[in-house]
Design a protein around this nucleic acid. Structure first.
Lengths: 321, 321
DNA sequence: TTGTATGCGTTATCAA
DNA sequence: TTGATAACGCATACAA
């Protein structure tokens, strides 16, 4: 252990209260006294013990982020944005990978919310908010991001892709495609459901109904989309629609093996993929903005636990390249 | 605030000492009593307040990981492995993105090492260990991972790629390639330097010297390799060597635009890219193992701050597909 | 302008 | 086998 507040007080010839107030600016101190304290602090390389401070004040200056899959660039981009946002106010970000497991999410939730972090941003693998509510102290600051849960009563930052999906389908139909293959993500996620619904509605609004046999969903987080993709191409699809970046990236190796009569629409989840997706049509998600908004919102929530929950909606944009 | 140890004690009809001992296994407790305590813990969703525990024990059960670039899958893979490893012993991982900035690294270092984490794993953007040593309390547990620093006196987990690079160059030369283009990462990193040296040596051991005009290094972390790659192809290269996965991924969009008379060797930094790199020859890094070893080592170092520093070396493997 | 004393929620040392 | 209680290092209400 290093120096403690009592050591500083002794060296400066003042009480520990004065040391504390000098360091926190929490009460006027005579300039000369303050000077002596600061010198003692410097001489002893004193830094306040953050556990003691947290225990006393209840404030950790730390936000947790529960991520379903850290090896997905979508979340890496979001992490970066959140961290940048909260760092502005002196907060640290603690990232924990929940591996798309509701089980692990709950266990991590429980261990973080009691004394480690002041608030939690969660991209949840659960489906109902009540599944996590039991494990949280009442009014614990929570911001849900990207994925919506049923019976949610927490703040939410979400991206709406309905319009962008409509435009992309409209584009493909105008280009005359009749067999459009389609691969979405995990069926139980709100994002998947919303994109799927938007996709169907877009066809219906054109007076069509899509060939359901050309629509696939990935059963598991680690499912390989390659066989699905090959199947769709074999079936004679002339266009492919990918419901997220990762699926598209993983499928690229297949696409190279075939001649290219087809057009591709894919979600662009992270600017990292912009170059890789050159020549495709992309639905760009405002991933960084989502992270920034989530970071901003969790700090607001920590500061004001009692104001009503907010929903913040952002929008994806379709680019036909 | 949630339930406290006094609440549990009251509900179970025992003293707080007994609750503590049941939870920590630090003293024999009658089975029936222990059972009652556990039930109360469960009923109240009690979790010990970690600030209080840390204050008392001096142990935070938290490891920090300073990552230069969280949107690089290489590091995402490592994060996952570290977290998995230390979770076995009840430790949490706190990830902070240093954005390839030595400046930011030092500032984060300073704020984390005094009371927030028990130890730090660092993939450093600095070049000399003494640059960070000044900001650390004496004997603070540090494990350097992936990147070696000059004058290092901390534990180190590093991957050696010399043999794999030799084999890959040998392979390309045997296949008769005479113009081999080459793109490496940031010049100041030990990994880049080692790979570059190994590349040159491999040619020399074949009695050749590589055409230096076909070797490129990325000047900055956010540099776009695409123009470099195009240039190399224009110059008539029949084979390309990528010094890391990300550079290769970013260059893929170019490669599609040219007919394919060339062969590609690339580092495979993360299993995520395995499919994408199908048909290429890869130098596979043991990224997950590096993370696991780093996690294991930091816990050893925290437990035994006084044993001499260790160097742990792993090896990349070349696969000609 | 400064000092004293209490308590934050644990762990661990005594006693019983 | 269990309970009472003293720290851990700090912030802060209350005194002076």
């Amino acid at each position: 252990m290093g120096a403690k507040i009592t050591d500083v007080a002794a060296l400066a010839g003042v009480s520990i209260a004065t040391v504390s107030h000098v360091l926190n600016g929490s009460r006027p101190v005579r300039e000369e006294t303050a000077e002596r304290v600061l010198q003692a602090v410097h001489a002893l390389h004193y830094t306040p013990n953050s556990s003691a401070r947290s225990l006393k004040t209840g404030n950790k200056r730390m936000v947790g982020f529960l991520v379903p899959d850290i090896s997905n660039l979508f979340f890496a981009t979001m992490i970066d944005a959140i961290e940048r946002e909260i760092a502005k106010r002196g907060y640290h970000l603690m990232v924990v990978n929940t591996c798309e497991s509701g089980e692990k999410e709950r266990s991590v939730l429980q261990s973080l919310c009691t004394g480690i972090v002041d608030g939690l941003i969660i991209a949840s693998s659960l489906s109902d908010y009540r599944e996590m509510e039991d494990y949280l102290p009442p009014k614990f600051p929570i911001v849900l991001v990207d994925r919506r849960l049923e019976n949610n009563s927490a703040d939410l930052v979400e991206t709406v892709s309905y319009r962008a999906i409509y435009e992309s389908v409209d584009y493909l139909l105008r280009r005359g495609h009749e067999k459009i293959g389609c691969i979405f993500g995990l069926p139980h996620l709100s994002t998947t459901q919303n994109r799927y619904d938007a996709y169907l509605r877009a066809f219906r609004e054109h007076g069509l109904s899509p060939d359901e046999s050309l629509i696939r969903k990935l059963p598991r987080a680690d499912s390989n989309p390659v066989p699905l993709c090959e199947e769709l191409i074999e079936k004679g699809c002339t266009a492919l629609f990918f419901g997220n970046s990762r699926t598209c990236v993983q499928s690229l190796c297949v696409l190279r093996h075939y001649p290219e009569p087809y057009e591709i629409v894919t979600f662009l989840d992270s600017p990292e993929y912009r170059e890789l997706f050159q020549g495709m049509h992309v639905i760009e998600q405002p991933t960084g903005s989502m992270g920034a908004m989530a970071g901003e919102q969790i700090l607001k929530r920590i500061a004001h636990p009692d104001v009503p929950a907010r929903e913040i909606l952002l929008h994806s944009v379709f680019h036909d390249n």
